[in-house]
Amino acid sequence: MSNRKIRVLLAKPGLDGHDRGARVIARCFRDAGFEVIYTGCHQTPEMIAAVALQEDVDVVGLSCLSGAHNYLFPQVAKLLQDKGANDITVIGGGIIPEKDMAGLYEAGIKEIFTPGATLDSLVEWINNNVNPKE
């Protein structure tokens, strides 16, 4: 019933420039009917959180392939929580070792997508798990 269009912020925190995944997902999300804001590479968690609030996004998708996800992902989640934006869904992707997952979920990352996830599964996950409030 909702007229709501899902808004997604795709961000690449950290210093790595492997943005192939992020770029492909940005297009895929557009084609799925979402409004997508992509930050490009090399953003700090502080910038990402600030943009997420200003843009009133429903989802923040983080991609990191540098190995620094254990610091960067929780930091974004924490900054959003500090601002009272608990309702923004934070998801992550990249080369995330199995053993890091629990810690990331604990820190408030709702889902981790690892290489091999299909585009459809991503869109489906968002459609099933993200319900923008009126």
Partner: peptide, 22 residues
């Protein structure tokens, strides 16, 4: 590592969490 690749020192705030990783 990424800070070196990007021209940042290890003590730059941008380098946090990245030192020696890759």
């Amino acid at each position: 590592d990424f800070p070196t690749l990007m021209g940042y020192n290890t003590d730059s705030p941008k380098a946090k969490g990245e030192c020696g990783k890759c």
